[in-house]
């Protein structure tokens, strides 16, 4: 990511001490490539991300489509992993590779943020495109978290795929927050390939709600369990 700054609308912010701050959506505009690069950074070579489309009320809405090779490592330990940096809660893996970083959504960049850490802090506004991309890419991590809460062991999960429409951008914070939630809740779809008792999977899909459509593909039994649903009517009401 650091090598791509000049071409992907990133803005390095001079570090006062210790770590660096890279602005990909506060003062810098950021963009599609920056958002994709951020997701790849979270995935650390263990997945794939692409942009797609979803037809909704005559609109070809952009979607963020994600493919996870090691969901156990990437979802909870990276994309949803909270780290305390000073008084702020940021997101990122505890440690891995050369890119020790955290992602922080903020409306303003304060250079002294980096004084509390030697990590690279990647910042974007919650109203930015990068933030919307990150939000949509969370559909799989959130589903994995939900599955774990419903009794699945992380080790039982082999691979995952997800797609979620992008929350339509706006400068109104409340509207953006509502749209991000609606994109996942009414437009998110997730496939998880795993090895679990069929009965547990049936129980899970019977109770699934609040996160679009889940499809649980049981590798040993060759059965697929589908829960939740896409609600395109509510989705269009909320995000268009």
């Amino acid at each position: 990511m650091m090598q791509s700054i000049s071409v992907k609308n990133f803005k390095p912010v001079a570090s006062i001490k210790n770590g660096n701050i890279v602005d990909i959506g506060v003062n810098a505009p950021g963009g599609w490539s920056a958002g994709k690069e951020l997701i790849y950074l979270f995935m650390n070579g263990m997945g794939y991300v692409n942009f797609g489309e979803m037809a909704l009320e005559g609109f070809a809405l952009p979607t963020v489509d994600t493919y996870f090779d090691n969901p156990a490592e990437v979802c909870l330990a990276s994309m949803l992993n909270e780290k305390k940096i000073g008084e702020h809660t940021m997101i990122g893996p505890d440690t891995w590779g050369e890119d020790n970083f955290c992602y922080f959504e903020t409306l303003e960049v304060k250079p002294d943020l980096s004084q509390k850490t030697d990590q690279t802090i990647i910042v974007a506004s919650p109203l930015s495109l990068v933030s919307a991309i990150y939000n949509s890419a969370l559909v799989v991590p959130l589903a994995v978290k939900k599955l774990v809460n419903m009794g699945v062991n992380l080790e039982q999960i082999e691979w995952a795929w997800g797609s979620s429409p992008l929350a339509t951008l706006s400068e109104l914070p409340d509207l953006v927050a509502m749209r991000k939630e609606a994109a996942l809740c009414y437009g998110g779809v997730v496939s998880i390939w795993l090895r679990v008792e069929d009965k547990l999977l049936q129980d899970i899909v019977n109770k699934w709600e609040g996160l679009g459509e889940i499809r649980l593909h049981n590798l040993p039994t060759a059965k697929t369990y589908v829960g939740g649903k896409l609600d395109l009517k509510k989705l269009s009401e909320k995000i268009l």
Binding site: N50, G52, T63, D65, W161, S163, S191
Partner: peptide, 13 residues
């Protein structure tokens, strides 16, 4: 490259 298709009622990779 990976993308998705809608088959019947379902989006699929």
């Amino acid at each position: 490259s990976f993308t998705k298709m809608k088959i019947g009622r379902y989006f699929m990779p």
